Amino acid sequence: MMGREVTVMTAGEGSNGDNQVEPDPDLRNFGEVLKASRKRAGLTQEQFGPKVGYSVQYVASVEQGRRHPSVRFVSKAEEVLDAFGVIQIAAKQLTRRRGLASWFRRWAELEEVAVALSTYECRVVPGLLQTEAYARAQIQNVPPMPTIQEADDRIARRLERQELLTRTPYASFSFIIEQAVIERQTGGPAVSLELIDHLLGCARLPNVDVQIMPTVSPEHSGTDGPFQLLETQENEWWGYSEGQKTGRVISDPKAVSSLHQRYAKLRIQALNPTDSAGLLMRLRGSL
C-alpha cells in the first residue's frame, strides 16, 4: 500500500498568511533535491523514513525546506537512495552558506569577488575584523537567543569570511569604526583586550586600513548609519546597507555615488591609520 505525503506546519503558520514562515531558499533547494532523489527511487516519505531511521514528519520537514538536515541524515539518504553523490553535493552547498542571514548572502557572494571593500560601522566591529570571543558575545547578546548550533554556525561562517583579508592576490580593505564600539567592551574587558590586539594586527596587514572615528566628532558624514562599498574584478561598484533583520544590496549608480561621497568624507573626518593605532593602544591600556 502506498503511503501518503505529509505537510508539516511550523510555528507561526496558520490561516493568517502574514504569519507564515518562508522556507530558506537554500534549505528549500536541498529539499527539492532530496525529494527528486526519493521519487526516482520509487519511495514515499513513509517508506523512506524508516530506511534512514527518521520519522516521516522529519523527512517532510526537510523536503519542505523547514529543517536543516543532520549530517547523519544526509549520509543515510545518500546511501539509501544511491543518489550518485547529488545529495552530498547539495548538502555541501547548504553548509557553505549556513550561518549567514538570508539578506546578507548576496553581499557575501560579492565579497568573494571583490578587489576593494570599504566599511563604515557605528554598531559593532565589522565581521571581517571580529575575534571568535567577540563574535560569540555579540551574537548571544541579541534576542531571540540562538541555539548553540546556530551560534556556532554563525561564528564559523564569520571567521571563514576573514580569509579574504589575507587571500592573494590581495584585495584592498578600508574600515572606519566608531570609537564607542570599542569602548562598549562587548563581552567584557578580556574580550575587548583580545579584540584590540586583533584589530592592531589586522591594521598591520599591507592591504588593510583601520581608522577610528573619535567619539567627539562635530563633523560627521555617517549619521545616516553604517554602510559598505565594494568593487568587483570587473570594476563594478556596489553598495550595501543593513538594519534590523534586513539588508539591501545597492546597484543604482546614483545611490552608490552618494555612498562614495560619504565614505570619502568619513576617511578625512576619522583619525588616520597611525593615530587610530595610537588610540587603540590607549584604549588597551585603560582596560
Score class of each variant (00 low, 15 high):
151 A>Y: 08
253 P>T: 11
57 Q>D: 15
220 H>W: 10
53 G>F: 10
206 P>Q: 04
268 I>F: 11
133 A>S: 13
43 L>I: 04
174 S>I: 05
84 F>M: 13
245 K>L: 13
80 V>H: 00
211 Q>H: 13
28 R>H: 06
166 T>L: 15
283 L>Y: 08
10 T>S: 12
68 H>P: 03
22 E>A: 10
95 T>E: 13
168 T>D: 03
79 E>N: 13
223 T>P: 01
150 E>Y: 09
179 Q>K: 08
21 V>T: 07
39 K>S: 12
61 S>H: 02
266 L>G: 01
245 K>E: 09
221 S>D: 05
113 V>T: 14
73 F>T: 01
31 G>L: 04
177 I>T: 04
223 T>H: 08
49 G>R: 14
48 F>C: 07
266 L>M: 10
35 K>N: 14
251 S>Y: 05
214 P>L: 01
42 G>S: 06
28 R>G: 05
173 F>K: 00
280 L>T: 01
219 E>K: 11
207 N>V: 02
139 I>G: 06
234 E>K: 15
50 P>E: 11
269 Q>I: 08
77 A>C: 00
250 I>Q: 00
75 S>H: 15
281 M>G: 12
172 S>V: 12
9 M>H: 14
230 L>D: 00
233 Q>W: 14
17 G>H: 05
244 Q>R: 12
153 D>R: 02
82 D>R: 13
121 E>M: 09
202 C>G: 06
41 A>V: 08
91 A>L: 03
271 L>F: 07
259 L>F: 07
227 F>G: 00
185 Q>L: 10
257 S>I: 05
65 G>Y: 02
276 S>K: 06
64 Q>K: 09
57 Q>N: 15
102 S>W: 06
126 P>W: 09
92 K>G: 12
258 S>N: 15
237 W>Y: 12
101 A>E: 09
111 E>H: 02
176 I>G: 01
280 L>M: 15
57 Q>P: 03
87 I>T: 07
186 T>P: 00
80 V>P: 01
285 G>M: 03
109 E>P: 03
58 Y>I: 05
272 N>M: 11
140 Q>F: 15
150 E>P: 06
179 Q>G: 02
264 A>K: 13
287 L>G: 11
256 V>R: 00
99 G>Q: 00
228 Q>K: 11
71 V>I: 08
163 E>M: 09
273 P>K: 04
212 I>H: 02
124 V>L: 11
223 T>A: 13
89 I>R: 15
77 A>K: 00
181 V>I: 06
287 L>A: 14
200 L>E: 08
283 L>F: 07
42 G>Q: 07
102 S>V: 12
34 L>D: 05
203 A>Q: 06
113 V>K: 13
